[in-house]
Design a protein around this nucleic acid. Structure first.
Length: 264
DNA sequence: ACCTCGTCCTGGTTGC
DNA sequence: TGCAACCAGGACGAGG
């Protein structure tokens, strides 16, 4: 979604001027050095892999951008919390905004991108090749709770806290179930649940939780579709049981104690 | 090899 | 009303 919006702005353009004002944005390099290296690079293509945005340059280098929770890329807009600015050769200006400064920019040399991603990011759950059987293979032997295993980007690409809770609710699976303990029909439910949660999220253009809004005025509406996430004390849309909040893998976790009971 | 936990960071919300 | 403590979360590194 972000890729779709930013790709036409960047593709074919040259980085004319780069200013990085957050010392921690680029890791581990010095931001001044990275900014200098980026100047003059021409964008060939913009891709996405999991939660990473990949800016591929004609030189073979790649800028790997991770927005984490509060990062955003703005075109020709004034904003607070701007951590970097890129001026393109057509005069347009890209601002990188990130309130919490968790986002990262990583400049990779030719040949470094593929191994970097291969070590960190698993299969894309929305491609046709993603099957319940494949999911079972990724979870096989895992003793970590399902919730933790699904948050691990090496299991599957792109699931965060919201979508894992939603997927598990759709699948009627308890977040504490050991990852490798699922029966075939449960894997099928999980496979469907993951796709359902993600497809709904995409259709609604993502979630705009708390007060974080896209500064251009647009905002996603996925938060209105939540079945589990953030709904402590509300009735389950399926069975009416009061939803509960707990903590799994260090993350807040919402589930229905009845239709997501431990053994279902 | 696998798993858990602490850390980073800021601003909104909660509680006294 | 004011202020401090708490909470949110993705990835990574340390330690079990």
């Amino acid at each position: 979604m972000i890729r779709r919006r930013i790709a036409p702005v960047l593709e074919g353009r040259r980085f004319e001027r780069v200013e990085i004002s957050d010392a921690r944005l680029t890791r581990p390099e010095d931001p001044l050095a990275v900014a200098a290296e980026l100047m003059g690079e021409r964008v060939e293509r913009v891709d996405r892999r999991g939660k990473y945005l990949i800016v591929r340059f004609a030189s073979g280098r790649a800028l790997l951008i991770h927005l984490r929770m509060t990062g955003s890329l703005l075109v020709n807009a004034d904003a607070t919390h701007v951590r970097a600015v890129v001026e393109l050769d057509d005069g347009s200006e890209i601002a990188y905004r990130d309130v919490r400064r968790f986002g990262t920019w990583l400049l990779l040399e030719p040949g470094e991108l593929e191994p970097y991603l291969a070590a960190r990011v698993g299969e894309e759950p929305l491609v046709a090749a993603f099957t319940a059987r494949g999911l079972g293979e990724r979870l096989e032997g895992r003793r970590a709770p399902l919730k933790a295993a699904l948050l691990d980007q090496r299991t599957l690409a792109g699931l965060g806290n919201i979508y894992v809770d939603e997927a598990l609710w759709y699948a009627k699976l308890n977040p504490l179930r050991p990852g490798g303990s699922l029966e075939r029909n449960e894997l099928r439910r999980l496979h469907n649940g993951i796709r359902k949660a993600l497809e709904l999220g995409i259709a609604r253009q993502g979630s705009t939780v708390s007060t974080y809004r896209l500064p251009d005025g647009s905002s996603g509406s996925m938060q209105r579709e939540f079945r589990a996430y953030g709904r402590t004390g509300e009735p389950c849309d399926r069975c009416g049981t009061v939803l509960e909040k707990t903590r799994v893998g260090g993350r807040s976790t919402w589930f229905c104690p009845d239709c997501q009971a431990a053994t279902t």
